[in-house]
Design a protein around this nucleic acid. Structure first.
Lengths: 113, 113
DNA sequence: CTCCATGTTCGACAATCATCGAATAAGTGT
DNA sequence: ACACTTATTCGATGATTGTCGAACATGGAG
């Protein structure tokens, strides 16, 4: 029995100073991932399966990995679920005002709400 | 003899309200294109061949097309050259503060200057 | 008219990407 | 034990992407 419960591998999160701008922009250039980020921007924490996106579970898993490795989200294990938060403060420390501006732009997009 | 001089096809530029956020983010997620945009943000107008990027002419042409169709740049013909400007005002009208924030983030990136 | 400079279009190519289904893993509840 | 829920990993697939070289088009200079 392992003392620290983990689903599979240890979740890797880049340090704030390691976050790459191009990875972030690429991550945000996909509608499904943008929906995830937008949803997280208004709610503190959320389980993977509860996002308003319409893709297969395996596809969703892929998008979470992209977002996590880009430094946009943080994920932690809790029992059966994986809880996700937006790394808003760290993102804002690294790239001040950028995430806010992009999310604001998304709200102006057709079909964003 | 055509009265209006044009190189090949007519240059298509999306109207401000047609500019798609995901196209913009995707366009900015490439280092070469980001360099082009950054360069244009400090200079009013520039010919295609004068950008500090190290790619083949045909590749450069491709990147300009991506940027133009995303609505980030405007291009006009002048004699032999194609002069490019950043659509900063229109971008800011469509997505207030976003371009500025992204360019600011780029300045904070390693090797941006 | 003939070079030359500027920049595009066309194909090709390898790499990356978003997507899915099937199999797997781990925790919860009966 | 067993079933159920949650979510991942793996492999495949078709689409998109960044890159280049070769050919072409256009305008100016000699």
């Amino acid at each position: 029995m392992s003392r620290t419960s983990r689903r599979r591998a240890v979740l890797e999160h880049p340090a704030p100073e390691e976050i790459d701008l191009f990875d972030v922009l690429h991550a945000l250039s996909d509608p499904t991932r943008m929906t995830i980020v937008r949803t997280l921007s208004t709610e503190p924490e959320r389980a993977c399966g509860t996002f308003p996106v319409d893709v297969a579970p395996s596809t969703l898993s892929h998008h979470f990995k992209v977002l996590r490795e880009a430094g946009l989200i943080h994920q932690r294990e809790e029992a059966n679920r994986r809880l996700t938060t937006l790394r808003a403060a760290e993102l804002d420390e690294r790239f001040p005002g950028m995430l806010t501006a992009v999310l604001g732009a998304y709200e102006r997009s057709p079909g964003a709400r």
